[in-house]
Design a protein around this nucleic acid. Structure first.
Length: 113
RNA sequence: AGAGUUGGUUGGAUGGUUGCGCAACGCCUUGUGCGUUGUGAGGAAAGUCCGAGCAUCACAGAGCAGGGUGCUUGCUAACGGCAAGCGUGGGUAACCAUAGGAAGAGGGCAACAGAAAUAAACCGCCUAAGCCUUACGGCCGGCAAGGAUGGAAAUGUGCGGUAAGAGCGCACACGGAAGCAUGGUGACAUGUUUCUGCUGUAAACUCCACCCGAUGCAAGAUGUGGAAUCGUUAUAACGCUGCUCGCCAGAUUCCCCCAAUCGCUAGAGCGUUAUGGCAACAUAACGUCGAGAUAGAUAACCAUCUUCAAUGACAGAACUCGGCUUACAGGCCAACUCAAAAC
RNA sequence: GCGAGGGUGGCGGAAUGGCAGACGCGCAAGCUUGAGGUGCUUGUAGGAAAAAUUCCUGUGUGGGUUCAAGUCCCAUCUCUCGCA
């Protein structure tokens, strides 16, 4: 699970990403990312009310956080990333979601082996 | 064994590994740190439909308007909740449903159909009295028994009565109102006497009785720099309520900042036992402390046990309680009803 | 968390408790034209029956009040909006 220091918290951070972030899409997730001035990368997760009730939404957020926790050593620092879930995400299981996010990070150019 | 009714209960347990929130303690490299220990969602946490606490708003106040409730007695901090009853309706029954005061305070509405819709005469029935006519019959009239309709046509049956008829009279039945008696705390029930035959609608307005000040933790408290406008002994700008009164000397807007800290969890709390009560519930004693986040923590995997099964339902605290309503895989328990084979 | 408003033909959108679907758009058929457009007329909720026509179901869903409910009351589902 991802610790709090790696998470996006403030509203202005989210607003900045919505305005300036680079958008990349996959089947069930949208990634927005941009450079930041800190030493660490930060991650935010957005799941809208349309996707399901609170139990479903919390479960999706947990899965996404677990995913990033696994990939954290392979991700470049100094980058803010936001993941927006689409409604198709409810049919995905954990392993295929991980592959999808790995592909997105590679597309964004912030992945290194 | 079948069909069914009602109520209650449960919503896995233990251990391990990897993680997350909060609290306490410890460490040193003093911070977006590490370690140890403890603790960490529900029966509905949900819907936000009611009722309270708490907070702010003249001094929390008055009147009007507006809103709510509506059989009785009790319970409760309070309630539109609950319990026990009453009346009415449904069901073979167990049982279920029930916003159930007033239409004699007042107006309003009742489409279409029908002669007529809250009072009547289209068809119909009748020529006894009066007038005309030799007579048949007609005029003047009388009647509301029968008849298309409709949710509703003014109580039903029989006898008398009559020209024809009619609660016009009588008997019985069915209501309604008032009085009295008995039982019950009461709603009401039973009996009886007198009068009486009145359309429905208040979940439309209304009347009657009772209740309600407004806003909600995005309440509010602490802290915080600058600018502008309005007001300052008055008919009070602004605010308290929609309006009127009454009260208040500071108020409003914009920019900046933190989305800071507090509020934030020991409470009408929970469990057991005893006593009182048909019950809801109350009282006493003993024990107990069980989340407090703020982009928002509870998860994943494994093993063992209980189990038909546990991989499985509905579903995630956001100031806190009491209810109501709705969603829900499966399991368990209790009480009762109907039909009837067989014994 | 707190609060407010809506749901009616294929679409938008009316309707005082009284024959549900005004009106507009769209669609279909006919007339007009050499042909098309425009214009005019008629029809158009769904289902069943060969047709005239008849029957049944229809205002998000389920109950209730009423003779009668899109309308009044209760519960519920869903959509939209506001409040720092």
């Amino acid at each position: 699970m991802l610790k709090k220091k790696f998470r996006l918290k403030k509203k202005y951070e989210f607003q900045y990403l919505y305005k300036k972030g680079v958008r990349l899409h996959s089947a069930s997730v949208t990634l927005l990312c941009a450079q930041n001035k800190h030493h660490t990368s930060k991650f935010g997760f957005v799941v809208s009310k349309k996707i399901g009730n609170s139990v479903v939404r919390n479960a999706i957020k947990r899965k996404l956080r677990a995913c990033i926790d696994i990939f954290l050593p392979n991700i470049k620092s100094e980058c803010n990333c936001m993941f927006i879930a689409k409604d198709t995400i409810t049919q995905k299981d954990f392993s295929s979601l991980c592959l999808e996010i790995k592909g997105l990070l590679q597309k964004a150019g912030i992945w290194y082996e």
